[in-house]
Amino acid sequence: MADPESAQEFTALYADNHPRVYAYAVARAGQPLADEVVAETFLVAWRRFAQMPSGAALPWLLGVARNVIRERYRDEGRQRAVAAEMLAWAADTPDVADGVAERSAVLTALARLSENDREVLTLIAWDGLSPRAAARVVNCSTPAFLVRLHRARTRLERAVAAAEEPAITKEPSR
């Protein structure tokens, strides 16, 4: 028996943001868990709807999703599964198109990074957030986020270089 006005508003919020919360859930918890994470995120979001900051719905929702994932699926098993899934995405790439080697190297490199690094990188590159919005999701200041991003990016560059090495001997690109 929710009050009709809030319910309508919330249903619209759900329709607008479902794809992006889902994408975040896949990247952070793996595809098999994504639907469950999304459902739980919106349930928690509904309970705390009154506290949603106006004009920043998405970072707030992703912050809720982040907490849901940390609460329910923070264990080793999940992290192994997510890394394994990322490697599968890399292997899944059809090896005909241009840029395939690079795409595969990037995904392989990403899978090798820490969960924290993966998070800051994908919030920007895949979820399309600004550093300020991404900082809200991980609950730190924007400067602190930029430092994390810089370091994660450096590690990704290194990991990509390492991942590309075997590929280069087989099929040199550039």
Partner: peptide, 19 residues
């Protein structure tokens, strides 16, 4: 590398539909 990462965004991240 950030551009390469953005381009490598897996299609699996997009839900088949909004249930």
């Amino acid at each position: 590398v950030m551009k390469a990462l953005a381009e490598a965004r897996p299609a699996q991240l997009d839900p088949p539909r909004t249930p």
